[in-house]
Amino acid sequence: MTSTDRTGSTDTADDRDGGAAGAQRVSCTIRDGVADVRLERPDKRNALDPAMFTALARTGERLHADPSVRAVVLSGAGRSFCAGLDVAAFGEMATGEHDLPGTDERADGLHGPATALGQRAAHVWTRLPVPVIAALHGHAYGGGLQIALGADVRLAAPDTRLSVMEIDWGLVPDMTGTQVLPELVGRDVAKELTFTGRIVEAEEAGRLGLVTRVVDEPVAEALRLAADVASRNPDAIREAKRLLDLAGRVGLEEGFAAEQTAIRRLIGSPNQAEAVRAKLDGRAPTFTDPS
Rank of each mutant, 00 (worst) to 15 (best):
D11P: 03
D216N: 07
L74D: 03
E253H: 09
R207F: 08
A230Q: 03
A227Y: 03
G197P: 06
E203F: 11
A262F: 08
V132D: 06
G22T: 02
T54K: 09
G282R: 10
C82E: 00
A107G: 12
G33D: 01
A20C: 08
P234I: 00
T7A: 15
A107M: 11
M1Q: 01
V69G: 09
T103I: 15
L244S: 14
R106N: 04
E204F: 08
H123R: 05
M1K: 03
A88W: 13
V172D: 15
D108V: 07
D5A: 14
T196R: 10
S3L: 13
F287G: 01
D168V: 08
R198D: 07
E192V: 12
E239H: 11
A148T: 00
A57M: 12
A89S: 14
V219G: 03
S291H: 15
A20S: 14
G78R: 07
R213E: 15
A273P: 04
P131G: 02
R58N: 12
I167W: 08
V132P: 00
E239R: 07
D245V: 04
D174S: 14
A107W: 08
I30F: 01
V72R: 01
S269Y: 02
N46P: 11
E201L: 15
G251Q: 09
A122R: 00
V200C: 06
A236R: 06
D245S: 12
L210I: 09
M1L: 10
M165Q: 13
R238T: 08
R16Q: 08
R106P: 05
A240W: 06
G18D: 01
A222D: 05
G102H: 13
H123L: 09
H64P: 09
D188C: 09
V180F: 09
T176H: 10
D235F: 05
L208P: 03
V26W: 00
T10D: 12
Q260P: 09
L208A: 03
R265Y: 12
R127T: 08
A157M: 04
A151T: 03
R238H: 01
T194N: 11
